[in-house]
Design a protein around this nucleic acid. Structure first.
Length: 841
RNA sequence: GCCGGAGUGGCGGAAUUGGUAGACGCAAGGGACUUAAAAUCCCUCGGGUUUCGCGCUCGUGCCGGUUCGAGUCCGGCCUUCGGCACCA
């Protein structure tokens, strides 16, 4: 054994050994319970940063721990390899997107390998390979056949400069994130997945997600956004046409004093008198988003409708705040009980009739809309009812009289998946003049994405310019036809990759028995930024796959850990934008010498130039130190501001462990590890086994687990063994420590495990057990309180009864002093370690 | 605006059900070793007070409450970070 801890040498050696022996490949083992541990796979952007490291190290600790606990753990890794950056690199410097991506994957794989994560590389996948995306296309066709994939014209974010649709998150303050030109709305034919068909099930499923953080579940519910209410018809005066509205408040029907149509409502141009004004409003409506919303913009159409409840004549307005995409695109306005309607009514001088009154019962002219509960007034036969009850009664009434029906609406929209982009999965549809949109036949899959094309970055779907791709034969009538030239949203790729991992790359992609064996994912770990989109899409896909008889579960992820973001300060130059820290030294931009602005502390990202890679850290201290440090810094769910202040502490810890073992190596090799009884070090060891195990099991608070191991090392280091018994105790402590630390610092533990004479891998040894009895303290420090304040402490035997402890407390010199002349009202013993004396006041 | 989370030493953070607030680590200061430095080891380390011996006292964002006892429970605020945001 070397005297000095040399992490670089050790880590290189063990990483090679683990890889060569395929130590981390997962063979299905029916004799063990399975455990599927998954970290969200990365986009191969070029370099791994500390945010990735944190994610993967958490997953690796759980994996190694579960293996030692006897589980058959599946722990795969792969690449979310389609997406815009590859395409942009191709446009910018002509590197083919595939080469750029594969180079990045190779580089990042080396970086990941250096942190010693135990991945089963036999299952590595990259979503940009035809073997993988073939199945995206296959699922698309299955969904098309079932009406779950359909094409419709819809309004999308459009960048005229780049000639493409942008996702919502790619629109930054109304501008294109890439070229900074203003984004507009555009009607476009797009493919959609009918996720709304599963809205109710996805919502109900939220209640089964007990292993998810509550805030993520609530974000999902929020996103699905169910509201129950009623749809009603407001007949238009002197016409056969009716306006169908949706409301969640049928109890306020008697207060509806006008009706509003969305500017995009088909009836708007028919009813509106002033067409010019209408098209002005429509233009505003198309442009606006939440930030620029004009709440009172609207116009009177000149027409009236009839409130079906009371026969009152109500004016019909067009209002910019009414969205065509939600509900029926038309609303009844109850200004007394809806703040938006109230504002609109004030601006347009419309009547406000209060129909619900709160506790005070007064019905003075309202200063603002009253949106609370209360009793109905001015409501015909329903006057006097509580509004909760009135909702039911009025629903009953409208259904009986054919005025309307109870209805449920969701905020969730169908998932638009068409992208006018190159680097993605081609949509397997062929357009035939005779047969229309026809899916590619299954035998022809995959539709290969051509790789040898030149990208110019302008002009819509790049594939449209590739004649050899576009021209095809209609699968049905075999006449010349054309392919769909859009590609799929990359979220499709990540919606089922966890299914693919269940089988090795050499096995069939959707092997049913493998899938049934490994799904669901027992522990999923990733950033909270995916709380809605990726996780919702995956839950949707899982249900679709279930209905296709491919998977047997409803929910893909049993437990979810959303690890906190790793943040870092940013620097910005007024002229050159984001700067690397070294470009901002001395407070001046190194390019133009202007003063730089210290930006917000933000999540590490390549575009903000605030990324810290693990390379410096691992080269200097080794992967084990980097792992321990990143886990010790904070509990995993917390955001951290990156700083390597303190990394020395983790390094010192591993060095001290090394030194302890080095300086006792001969004795450690000789002694058997027994540790059921006797001595403070044995006791401390049992306590530590307990603490580390609990910290992992309870809530993955690895920081406290590591703290406990540091305590044990402190005690073991200051222990001065002299007898054989002492060495046996030390031996037990060291063995336990290495086992407990091995998931966190795998290389050094494996090395030291061999050094003390163990033949098998530390990871093949079962996780240590603690003995409740051996962990018990013989002596305790009894805390004595008077009226809740600590007044004395006394070291006593832990074995004494509560009554004895009371007696000792009351007999304590200081307590006697303080209680003399006072009446003791009550004496309480808490958990055997604290006596509280309550005095008469 | 609505829905979540968070607020504890100079810093990162501990404190499982209400029961010794500040574990563990970083930084800082002092000391030992060394020709010197690094590394290592030892000591101190929330504020105030003190006769420096214990002790007393204040202290977990702010105000109040419940309790023998509150970082933890309840009510009301403040700050901050996320998410959603014309959803009828």
């Amino acid at each position: 054994m070397e005297e000095k801890y040399n992490p670089i040498e050790i880590e290189k050696r063990w990483q090679k050994h683990w890889l060569d022996s395929a130590a981390d490949a997962t063979a299905r083992d029916a004799s063990k319970p399975k455990f599927y541990c998954l970290e969200m796979f990365p986009y191969p952007s070029g370099k791994i940063h500390m945010g990735h490291i944190r994610n993967y190290v958490i997953g690796d600790v759980i994996t190694r721990y579960k293996r030692m606990r006897g589980f058959n753990v599946l722990h795969p890794m792969g690449w979310d390899a389609f997406g815009l950056p590859a395409e942009n690199a191709a446009i910018l410097n002509g590197t083919p997107a595939s080469k750029w991506t594969l180079d990045n994957i190779a580089y990042m794989k080396r970086q990941i390998a250096k942190i010693g994560c135990s991945y089963d590389w036999e299952r590595e996948l990259a979503t940009c390979t035809p073997q993988y995306y073939k199945w995206n296309q296959w699922f698309f066709i299955k969904m098309f056949e079932r009406g779950l994939a359909y094409k419709k014209n819809s309004s999308v974010n459009w960048c005229a400069q780049c000639q493409t649709v942008l996702a919502n998150e790619q629109v930054i303050e109304d501008k294109c994130w890439r070229c900074d030109s203003t984004v507009t709305k555009k009607e476009l034919d797009q493919w959609f997945f009918r996720i709304t068909a599963y809205a109710e099930e996805l919502l109900a499923g939220c209640d089964t997600l007990a292993g998810w953080p509550e805030h993520v579940v609530s974000m999902q519910k929020n996103w699905i956004g169910k509201s129950t209410g009623a749809e009603l018809d407001f007949p238009i005066e002197n016409s056969d046409i009716k306006i169908r509205i949706f409301t969640t408040r049928p109890d306020t029907l008697f207060g509806a004093t006008f009706v509003c149509l969305s500017p995009a409502h088909p009836l708007a141009p028919i009813l509106a008198g002033d067409k010019e004004r209408l098209s002005g409003i429509r233009a505003q409506y198309d442009k606006q988003d939440a930030a620029t919303a004009q709440t009172t913009l609207g116009m009177f159409t000149g027409k009236y409708a009839v409130n079906p409840m009371n026969g009152e004549r109500v004016p019909i307005f067009v209002a910019a705040f009414v969205l065509m995409e939600y509900g029926t695109g038309a609303i009844m306005s109850v200004p007394a009980h809806d703040s938006r309607d109230f504002e609109f009514a004030k601006a347009h001088n419309l009547p406000i009739i209060q129909v619900i009154t709160g506790e005070n019962g007064a019905s003075e002219p309202l200063e603002e809309a009253y949106e609370g509960a209360g009793t109905l007034i001015n409501s015909g036969d329903f006057t006097g009812l509580h509004n909760k009850e009135a909702i039911l009664k009025i629903n009953e009434y409208i259904e009986k009289n054919g005025i309307g029906v109870a209805a449920v609406k969701y905020k969730l929209r169908d998932w638009g998946i068409s992208r006018q982009r190159y680097w993605g999965t081609p949509i397997p549809i062929i357009y035939c003049k005779e047969c229309g949109a026809v899916p590619v036949s299954e035998g022809e899959l995959p539709v290969i994405l051509p790789e040898d094309i030149e990208l110019k970055g302008v002009g819509g779907s790049p594939l449209a310019a590739v004649d050899s791709f576009v021209s095809a034969k209609c699968p049905r009538c075999h006449r010349p036809a054309t392919r769909d030239t859009d590609t799929m949203d990359t979220f499709v790729d990540s919606s089922w990759y966890f299914v693919r991992y269940c089988s090795k790359m050499t096995e069939p992609a959707l092997d049913k028995s493998n899938i049934e064996h490994f799904l669901p994912v027992d522990q999923y770990i990733g950033g909270v930024e995916h709380a809605v989109l990726h996780l919702l899409y995956s839950r949707f896909f899982t249900r679709v796959l279930r209905d296709l008889n491919i998977v047997a579960v409803d929910e893909p992820f049993t437990r979810l850990l959303t690890q906190g973001m790793v943040c870092k300060e940013t620097w910005k130059c007024p002229e050159h934008g984001w700067l690397f820290p070294e470009e901002a030294q001395g407070g001046k931009c190194s390019l133009c010498k202007q003063p730089v602005v210290r930006g917000r502390v933000e999540k590490m990202s390549k575009s903000k130039k605030n990324v810290v890679t693990p390379d410096d850290l691992t080269e200097r201290y080794g992967a084990d130190t980097a792992r321990v440090f990143s886990l010790f810094a904070a509990p995993p769910e917390k955001d951290i501001d990156w700083s390597d202040q303190g990394v020395e502490g983790s390094y010192r810890f591993l060095n001290r462990l090394w030194t302890l073992i080095y300086s006792n190596i001969e004795k450690l090799k000789m002694h058997k590890r027994t540790g059921s009884s006797g001595g403070p070090l044995i006791r401390k060891t049992h306590q530590t086994i307990n603490k580390v195990t609990q910290s992992i099991e309870r809530d993955y608070h690895f920081n406290t687990a590591i703290a406990a191991l540091m305590e044990l090392l402190n005690e073991a280091s200051s222990f001065r063994p002299s007898s054989d018994e002492d060495y046996a105790a030390l031996c037990f402590a060291v063995h336990s420590m290495l086992l407990l630390l091995s998931p966190f610092a795998p290389h050094v533990c494996e090395e030291l495990w061999q050094a003390i004479g163990e033949k098998k891998s530390v990871f093949h040894h079962p996780w240590p057990e603690w003995d409740e009895e051996a962990a018990k303290e013989e002596e305790i420090e009894l805390v004595i309180q008077i009226d809740g304040k600590v007044r004395a402490k006394e070291t006593i035997s832990a074995a004494l009864s509560d009554n004895d402890k009371k007696a000792i407390a009351l007999d304590n010199k200081k307590i006697v002093e303080l209680t003399t002349g006072k009446q003791v009202k009550q004496v309480i013993v808490v958990r055997g370690k604290l006596v509280s004396i309550v005095l008469e006041k």
